[in-house]
Simulated assay, not measured.
Amino acid sequence: MLIKKSLNANAVIAVDLDEKEFILFGKGIGYGKKTGDKVDETVVNQTFIPLSNSEIKEYVSLLESIPPVILEITRSTVQHAEKVLKCALNVNVYFMLSDHLNFAIERQKNGILVQNRVFWEIKNYYTTEFEIGRYALKLIMQDLGIKLPDEEAANIAFHIINAQTDDSTKKDGMNYANLISGVVSIVRYSIGKQIDTHSTHYQRFITHLKFFSERFFSDSMLIEKNDTLFEQIAISYPEATEIAFMVKDYLTSVYEKHIPKEEITYLSVHINRLLNAQEIDDGKHV
């Protein structure tokens, strides 16, 4: 592969033998390079294949405006995220996240604070992604000596959540967080007692809500095919089922979507586990 253009020290546009254009990232890959130089493939960390000429122009303009150190922080953060999450992220995260970090650092220098409205939800419901965000903040402090607030860790988490997909439909972290927050509020209020947010049952409940959110926003909720199971759960766990229907009414009201019985069934099961956990904890203090 030959270099067509050096964007900065850590990014270049390269062409292969078929004259296909690629954006390549790597620490020092563009340092001192000129058009026509061979690419040092030993320092290539990620290859990008833009889908159209208009896209590559947009990315080129973006990358040329971002300092190399921020591109390197982005690359390290994404690689760390893929290792922790054990999945490949959508390559667009490199462009979107580097642009966000560059803007966040500029805001910090100018004393501008932008409040994250769902900071608490992201921190508590997307703990892995939030910690990845904190990892990025540590790199920024280490490499630039700039301390960004923890709210920026949640903003970074948004990009990581949105990038966890292999298709063109991106996850919307803010929508997910808002839905989960609303459901959890209803369940906690209905139970009427303090829930141990560190318990296994609570963590499983949150995990269930994350997968439910994916199905909900992608219109791929579970199909109603087992009325018998629904009836059994409704009879066995009446209190949990009642709370699940409160959740259903809330979601239908806010999002105007039908919630199948199959989803209500599994939601009832998880709520019942929380109820049982509360009864056990209460028994310890009798």
Rank of each mutant, 00 (worst) to 15 (best):
S65H: 12
D172M: 05
I243E: 04
Q278H: 05
T169V: 14
N226E: 11
M221Y: 08
Y176P: 04
V39M: 12
R273A: 14
S61P: 00
N92K: 15
S253F: 14
G283Y: 00
L63N: 08
K147T: 14
K38H: 13
I56M: 03
A88M: 15
S220Y: 00
A14E: 11
D40L: 11
E151I: 04
I66R: 03
E262M: 12
E41H: 10
T165K: 09
Y202H: 01
I49E: 15
R117T: 10
N162S: 15
R107C: 09
T207H: 10
S199P: 07
A240W: 14
K210F: 10
V84L: 14
D172Q: 07
E256F: 13
Q142A: 07
G133L: 00
I73R: 04
L63Q: 07
T207N: 14
T77D: 08
L137D: 02
K261M: 12
E263I: 00
I280K: 06
V184T: 08
S190V: 00
V118S: 05
R204W: 13
K248N: 08
W120Q: 12
I3R: 11
V114H: 13
L85P: 04
R215T: 06
S61I: 09
R117P: 07
L179H: 02
E19Y: 15
A154Y: 09
A163G: 07
L137I: 03
Y202E: 04
F95D: 02
E64Q: 11
N276M: 15
A177M: 06
N155C: 08
M221T: 10
K5Q: 12
A244F: 11
V184R: 03
K57A: 15
H80R: 14
A244V: 00
D166R: 12
N178F: 11
A81P: 02
I264S: 06
H80D: 10
E231V: 07
S236W: 03
I243A: 10
K33Q: 09
I264Y: 06
